[in-house]
């Protein structure tokens, strides 16, 4: 069955009365000036912040299932990942997917100490940790922000495969418009609590309040 992710009359601190209808395999890019609440929107979608209106996954409202179950299916990859055990592997439950090599690690990585990780390693391992849960919706907050070009290619390639194999709904937040154009089917701009389609050629955030309209 193809996944569907729907927002109906959805409001939170970042947006007001948004309707959205996404289906599995689709990748939606989200951009906008800093501080407009892109991360807040993703938090609300993962039900970590309160919201008004409805979120539906495969037609089932978020309120109809326990919050942990919702969050396992609507996975959020935050810009700053959190680690609470000493060893990397202890954070993986279920065990890591067979994609370690794809991101430039070998099996040894599971035994590494979290405190010795670089910020880029943390980010890539956090992505793997989320992918391991095989969520139906993946909310990616700047997933390549701390990565060098080689690793950006790796991550983008892996996400491409995941998209084809698991067919999740992808919501990709980035400041890098080129990346969003490469990877996403459509791009929305978040500004002034509204989501509007990106108009090519229009500058983003130059004139606050005057969001380009489609």
């Amino acid at each position: 069955m193809n996944t569907t992710f729907k927002l109906v009359d959805f409001s939170c601190r970042a947006v007001e009365k948004v309707d959205l209808d996404l289906s599995g395999g689709q990748c939606l890019g989200l951009t906008g000036p800093s501080g407009t609440g892109k991360s807040l929107l993703l938090r609300a979608l993962a039900d970590l912040d309160p919201h008004a209106g409805q979120m539906l996954l495969d037609g089932v409202a978020s309120t109809r299932m326990p919050a942990p179950q919702w969050r396992r299916q609507v996975g959020l990859l935050p810009a700053e990942s959190a680690w609470w055990f000493d060893a990397v592997g202890d954070h993986f439950d279920p065990p890591p997917p067979p994609w370690l090599e794809r991101l430039g690690f070998d099996a040894q990585a599971m035994a590494w100490q979290v405190s010795h990780l670089s910020s880029g390693e943390r980010q890539r391992l956090a992505l793997l940790r989320m992918l391991a849960q095989e969520p139906r919706v993946m909310l990616l907050d700047e997933p390549t922000a701390n990565l060098d070009p080689k690793n950006i290619t790796r991550v983008e390639g892996l996400l491409d495969d995941v998209r084809r194999e698991l067919r999740p709904v992808l919501l990709w937040v980035s400041h890098d418009l080129d990346q969003l154009r490469r990877r996403c089917d459509s791009i929305l701009v978040l500004e002034g609590r509204r989501l509007t389609p990106l108009v090519e050629g229009a500058a983003i955030g130059d004139r606050p309040g005057e969001v380009p309209t489609p």
Binding site: A46, L48, A67, P68, Q69, R71, R72, G75, L76, P78, E80, S81, A82, W83, W84, R129, M130, Q133
Partner: peptide, 13 residues
């Protein structure tokens, strides 16, 4: 806060 919410994000209770 980040640690607690990081756990919640992964679907922990």
């Amino acid at each position: 806060r980040t640690l607690i919410e990081g756990r919640l994000m992964l679907g922990q209770t």
